[in-house]
Amino acid sequence: MVTRKIEILVGLFLLSGLAAFLVLVFNVANVDVKTGQSQYTLYAKFSNIGGLKVRSPVKVGGVVVGRVKAITLDEQSLLPVVEMTIDTQYNQFPETSSLSILTSGLLGEQFLGLTPGFYDEDIAMLVDGDRIDDTHSALVLEDLIGQFLYSVKSKDD
């Protein structure tokens, strides 16, 4: 009833289903198989995060070193706190490093730009759970336009 040919074709069918699944998981969703141990967590407080989202990349000079893991609001200061995970292979950032929210292109998505600070013997490296204090908030287009209009107006006067 079930010939060898049918068995082989059904086997191939199941395999191609599995292959499609793996392609979607690893090639399309780019799931990181690396476990949590190879990452460490940093925090940063901003006054305005603009359009930053969970999973937005953290870049150093354009190289993705980690991703935003969570965005919460600090209950006391009522300022947004961004939690990000950084790959352990990039663990040589001094405490003086600064973070800014940047936009790729005029209308593109927003990401975190990490600028490594200066380094000398007194200054330690950032480790798991540390907070970056030197942050620059997102540029909000409406605010910029408002400032521009204001300055134009004041010149006219």
């Binding site: 069918f13 199941l14 191609s16 289903g17 599995l18 292959a19 499609a20 699944f21 392609v23 979607l24 399309v28």
Partner: peptide, 15 residues
């Protein structure tokens, strides 16, 4: 069993 596998193949090929 078949339909989810077919949907995955459809999506992968579509991409």
């Amino acid at each position: 069993i078949s339909l989810p596998l077919l949907a995955l193949m459809f999506t992968a090929v579509g991409i």
